[in-house]
Design a protein around this nucleic acid. Structure first.
Lengths: 229, 229
DNA sequence: GCCGAAGAATTGACCAGGTACAAAAACACT
DNA sequence: AGTGTTTTTGTACCTGGTCAATTCTTCGGC
């Protein structure tokens, strides 16, 4: 169904155009996912057992684990489709553009189209999932960590490949700084959505904040917080 | 016992100077911890059950959970005593010093005394724990995430308190960049220890890398990876 | 058009981490 | 010694996650 949440259970397809088996598979996957998120949003992540989800989706517990390796994946897997995006942006940037500029421009563009990956989106399903993640410690942890681990590795590799002159540690730090900046901006936007603000109203400020944040990465913190400002 | 691993089960105390009850408590806590880490180092985190640890430490399973809330805490809790360190460094820095400089100097000093928190330490117990964390996905995740979450919050609050002129988002990004830089440096040092290098040999390079890394935060990435270098 | 085989989806039985609770043991204080 | 408090323990149980077997769908041969 490829909703705005980023739920891509397999690439986008016309459901009617493929073998019965595949269709059923996708249907049950979606049914399970919807059921789970619905129950979670209603009563909290820890207050809903997998058995309960299975029952509500009219499936056995095992089947749930077949489609989603862990309970957390029921919430997180849609968001983790985009882990390689930053690496791709750097790889495919127009030559002569710095990594910072490439990622900044891409993020600004994503903001302007209200991409859920920027946090600047108030679709019901998206906000439900975001709220869930913020409310559940283990999910919050996974959101930041799974991110940190994999995305950083990808971007680091990309930076090394692009610019073998610099050493690996520099690439790691650059990747980490860029990604954590992006994450911080996104989290900030998500917080505003949870507070009930409207994306269109937030957009100008979000663009401004993003520009300043990337500038911070580009030019450094300087003597930030030196007390002499 | 307050070993180099950072295991502070309660503040440092002379064991003989306090009531029998407390002494026993500390002794069993240490016994459980040692047993667990020994078994983990030998056979891997997932291959050892807590029931087994309990048996080997001559204690009931319940008691293990009494001292360490979760299985992960058996490995991680000693390292998480120092989460507020960065915030403290910023709070107690000499006036007029920027946050970057304060944290850099503190990190350099920690390196020179081979503080395990810098990764530059090859004590048997320390390396065992580090290897364990690197080998076990869930532990690695918790190491980076628990870090990211709590330490960042603390440092952010500190930066805001110190410099109310700047907005909160800037403080968040600054905190995140500083901490992730520190973490990246530490991870790099840990990798070298795991590869068998000696702390004394690594120290000069580690100091240099740390200086360059913090310079990167201070002055920014600039047009890093622009291809025109 | 029917049947059997291959292979997937699904399942029920099982293991390990973690919690709740009450009983028992060990300690401290008088 | 005796009593009250804290720690430890045993038991029972719940939940997330894994494994071998069972059932069902699809496809090729007759």
């Amino acid at each position: 169904m490829a909703t705005h949440t980023g739920l891509d259970l397999g690439p986008d397809r016309d459901l009617d155009a493929l073998p019965l088996r595949e269709r059923k598979k996708i249907q049950t996957a979606i049914r399970i996912w919807r059921t789970a998120v619905g129950l979670f949003a209603e009563r909290g992540f820890d207050q809903v057992s997998v058995a309960e989800i299975a029952a509500a989706a009219e499936v056995s517990k095992m089947t749930v684990f077949n489609y989603f390796p862990t309970k957390e994946d029921l919430v997180m897997s849609p968001m983790e489709q985009h882990l390689d995006e930053s690496a791709r942006v750097v790889r495919e940037r127009t030559p002569g553009t710095s990594a910072v500029v490439a990622l900044r421009e891409q993020y600004l563009a994503a903001l302007e189209r209200f991409d859920p990956a920027t946090g600047l989106n108030d679709d019901r399903a998206v906000v439900d999932v975001v709220r869930l993640i913020h409310r559940t410690p283990t999910l919050a942890m996974r959101a930041t960590a799974g991110f940190g681990a994999q995305a950083r590795a990808l971007l680091t590799d990309e930076l090394i490949a692009q610019d073998p002159a610099h050493d690996e540690l520099t690439a790691q730090i650059a990747a980490a700084q860029l990604l954590i900046t992006r994450l911080t901006l996104t989290t900030d936007n998500q917080r505003r959505m949870l507070a009930g603000e409207r994306p269109a109203d937030v957009l100008p400020g979000a663009l401004d904040r993003a520009r300043r944040a990337f500038a911070l990465v580009e030019r450094g913190l300087g003597d930030y917080c030196a007390g002499t400002s």
